[in-house]
Each structure stands twice: as structure tokens, then as C-alpha cells.
Design a binder for these strands. Structure first.
Lengths: 150, 150
DNA sequence: CAGCCAATGTTGGCCCGACCAACGTAACAC
DNA sequence: GTGTTACGTTGGTCGGGCCAACATTGGCTG
């Protein structure tokens, strides 16, 4: 049944299917981002920043789902490339306010384009209805598992 | 729309949905396996071994999708716990023949049970039809992206 | 206003899964 | 017999996801 002979114990387990397809997705995405010398975290922070406007690192962490400590390194990287700017918040000396620069915005649209192509590669075998259904199911799982905000 | 305020640029990207839900799945699964001091590779190799019968490490690698070098370490771990046995192949002195032991078989069924519960946790928000649909879509993606055996 | 608690940024770690290069040994094809 | 291929093994790298600890700063409450 399976061309590669994957044991059915594995190939019928949803979590295995999920992590395996995610691994393929990661490879595709990271190849795409690699052409612009970026990694997942870079894109995710830039996208979050463009969505929320200037924000503290803690806010970026919350909105992007990336750990505070990883945000630090990511902002360092982006700052080194002048895609982002780090300013102390005059109103709260604990905080930095992160701004996306014009160059950052430009880079973000580049990244988005290569990522669009990557999605196409990833979802190639599915028709539009199936793609939408997949997205719907994944969103249901995701919101369910992150909602427990108690 | 999103309770956590995830930027829509992210939350509508299939690859992001996939990798995020996969991350949740991994957490759930690794917690489940952790109760029996196992990791993903351990289960996958045991399951493959039970499916194929005694096999060389190279065969295990091919059937499980785990790299040869990672198989080595995994077999070491399983061997240390007597869940598996490594014998030189008399007919081909390059190879080892890996056998699953009775204890290994018992451990495998334990792991399967905890994993069944984990799947239930993971898929809780989906009804049976949706679960089947999700599995179907993921399998399609997976076979498509691993088939290029050229 | 003094004292305590919470939030922020940062450092420095850890784990896991995936992958790769190189090597010695052994089998195989020709 | 020679070159090529397969096998097991060693020893890495990388990315993503975490966690603990700490100094600094704000805010809240008594």
C-alpha cells in the first residue's frame, strides 16, 4: 500500500502523519527562506511586526508564539541587517520598542513571495477545496490546543 | 478572529499551520512516550521492527525514514534495555540483523496504548469524519513529497 | 512611601528530530 | 582483481522549541 513500505502502524497514526508532513513543509520553507538568507524566526518576527506595528519584544513573543529568549537573538539578527530597529521605550525603561524599517518591509514582501511559491509546492497534490479543508482542520486543532489560556 | 492575536499572515499560511500543529502533536506524543522513558525514534524503530520482522539497520532506516546514523544510536538505546537484539548476519558480514525481543514487543504494545490516548487528545476537537479527512489529506501530501524516488 | 510582586530583556543552557560527511569493512559486478 | 556499491559507525551541524536564572524596572498595596 505504501510505496516506501512505511509500517501501517506509523502511516495511520495522525501524529506521525502530521510531524512527517511538517518536516517536509519545513524543508521546503527553509529552502525558500534560505534563498534570502532568512530562517523561520526571521520571517515570523517580521510578519508579526508588520501586522502589529512597533512593539516590545515581549509583545512580539506573545503574538508570534516565539519564546522571549529566542526573540532576542532574532531581533539581533534582523537588527544587524537593518531590517528592524531597537529603541528603548522612554515610557518604560524595561522595554525596547522594535520598529520594522523600510528595508525590513521590502525584505518581508520578498520573503512572502518566495513563501507563496513554497506553499504551492507543498500543496501541489491538493485541489483548492482540499487545501481549504486542510487549513480549516489544522486551525481547529491549533486553536483548540492553544486556547487553554486559564 | 484569533484569540491569541496571531498575525493573519501567519495563521493563514498552510506551512505554518502544519508546523505549529505538528509542534503541539510532538509535545503531546513526547509526553506520552516519556511516561515510558521512550522517544519518537524508539517507538518508530520498534514499530517498524514488529512490522517487518528481523531486519538490517539499513532496512530499518529505509522503512522507518530515520537516517542510518540515527538508527545506530536508537538501536544502542533499545539494546541497552533489552528491547532489541543486535546480531551479525552470518550471510553478510557487513550487516547486523536486529531482532525485537519479547520484552520489546511488550513495551511496544504499552507504547501503542499511550500513543492511542495521545491521538485522542490531539484530535479531540474533530469528529470521526474530520479525522479521517485530515488523515487522507496528510497522506496525500506525504506520498506526493516522498515519492520522487528517482 | 516602603515593600513586595510582576514584567522585561538577556544569557546560557537543553532536547529532539533531521540531516550530512567521512571512514573502514565487506560484498558484488565485471 | 579491480572498482563500485552497500553497511555500520563516528562525529558532527542546524532549526525550532523550551526553561531557569538574573538584574532592572514598574506597579500595586499595605
Amino acid at each position: 500500500m505504501q510505496p516506501t513500505g512505511v509500517p501501517s502502524q506509523l502511516s495511520t497514526t495522525p501524529s506521525w502523519l502530521l510531524t512527517q508532513t511538517a518536516a517536509h513543509a519545513s524543508r521546503i520553507v527553509s529552502t525558500a527562506l534560505g534563498t534570502r538568507h532568512a530562517r523561520g524566526y526571521h520571517y515570523r518576527v517580521l510578519a508579526t511586526l508588520a501586522d502589529t506595528g512597533p512593539a516590545s519584544q515581549a509583545d512580539l513573543s506573545r503574538h508570534s508564539g516565539i519564546d522571549r529568549s529566542d526573540i532576542v537573538a532574532t531581533i539581533n539578527d534582523l537588527g544587524d541587517r537593518d531590517l528592524v530597529q531597537r529603541q528603548p521605550d522612554p515610557a518604560d525603561r524595561r522595554r525596547n520598542i522594535i520598529h520594522i524599517t523600510p528595508a525590513g518591509r521590502r525584505e518581508l514582501t520578498h520573503l512572502q513571495h518566495t513563501l507563496d511559491a513554497a506553499q504551492e509546492t507543498l500543496l501541489a497534490p491538493l485541489d483548492p477545496t482540499e487545501r481549504h479543508e486542510l487549513v480549516r482542520l489544522l486551525r481547529r486543532l491549533l486553536t483548540h490546543h492553544q486556547e487553554p489560556r486559564d
